[in-house]
Design a protein around this nucleic acid. Structure first.
Lengths: 215, 215
DNA sequence: GTCTATACCGTGATAGAC
DNA sequence: GTCTATCACGGTATAGAC
């Protein structure tokens, strides 16, 4: 602990600043100087705590990934318990995947919103998407894939994985909060309204998976 | 025409190089020097032809956007003609949206693959997503939205636009070709196999839209 | 009109002194 | 933990060659 007077340690302040800037400009669009300035610390302190810029990026990304994985797996366990001894429905599985992330009080915190922007950037980045997403999220996502396979015994693997791909693409695009949906819909829909999007996406994605269950 | 001997003009060579590099590293991850080196031209030539880096990025993006819009609108027109005087089915509309982009001989060309990577980057970028996607694609996409509204008279606007959001997220994540699906599925699915993904996505997305048509 | 060589000046990540 | 120096690299303007 560097400083007992401040609410957040300087180390956390650096992570917070990095999160916000990486979300908005991507890895290469952000300088350590900008991060330091936003965090109110010296340039060299980021280097001292995290080493290379690359490391700082990964640690920023990892920090909340673990929390999200926990939330999701708890939701999956809960719906498994409720359905037992039967397998949970497709809808319950999709709900356990989306609800913890797209609804709840944490959405009011700018830190979480920033982090979501970072996830959107990482997931569709050629450089990071294949590696960092896999490392941070895929172990937990494997449990969801397993649950979906149980719920949809007739569905082929290809259909399951591409179905997951659709889910992932839709969710992370929502995380990007680009405002494009606002333009396209002439203001009828707001792309930062994740809770509104959640309600629509659960139905849409559930229907997609249910369809591939009966060939 | 600058040079009758070369197959592509130097101007096009710059666009090709820019396309490949922007797709892989995003806007900020690419230097004009790297683009010039890849194109085999002097650094200043990019500046001469396109002005600011910003302009080069937008022109690179726009170049193939117009072609894609044409392909899609022709496919939509064709399915409208075939269905007439009835309205085309949801499945036909989704097919007209996806098939021209996800299947066909152009997928063999590296230039198109690179461009798709760029679309993936732009669509989920906070900086570009809201503005550039809107400008380049949304006029044509408006026709698809209209067709979907006709095919799904019971669906609310919110559901239609969030449905489109799911479609867009899934498509552009496929464009990113990050290889993540390969890892997650332990090699059962290949994320660069757009034609395979097309077959799965048509079913999945169609089912999503059909679901929101009956509340 | 098309293109190259080069120079400018600000800014970058990072290391080493303190 | 902090300050400062280093040294390379960034976008872009300009002057002139073909």
């Amino acid at each position: 602990m560097a400083n007992a007077d401040t609410k957040v340690s300087r180390k956390d302040a650096i992570l917070d600043a990095a999160e916000a800037l990486f979300a908005e400009h991507g890895y290469d669009g952000v300088t350590l100087r900008a991060i330091a300035a936003r965090a109110g610390v010296d340039v060299a302190l980021a280097n001292y705590h995290f080493g290379r810029k690359h490391e700082l990026f990964e640690q920023t990304f990892q920090r909340r990934a673990e929390i999200l994985n926990t939330w999701r797996l708890e939701a999956l366990e809960a719906c498994r318990r409720e359905a037992a001894p039967a397998a949970p429905s497709v809808r319950d599985i999709i709900d356990a995947y989306l609800r913890p992330l797209m609804t709840g009080p944490h959405l009011k915190e700018p830190g979480w919103r920033n982090y979501y922007g970072m996830v959107a950037y990482v997931n569709s980045s050629v450089t990071w998407g294949g590696q960092l997403m896999t490392r941070s999220y895929d172990p937990a996502i494997g449990s969801f894939i397993d649950a979906l396979k149980e719920a949809l015994p007739e569905a082929g693997d290809e259909a399951i994985y591409w179905g997951y791909h659709c889910l992932s693409g839709a969710l992370t695009l929502a995380f990007a909060q680009t405002g494009r949906l606002d333009h396209l819909s002439h203001g009828k829909v707001c792309s930062t309204d994740l809770e509104g999007g959640y309600l629509q996406m659960v139905d849409f994605i559930t229907a997609g998976f249910e369809r591939i269950g009966r060939p």
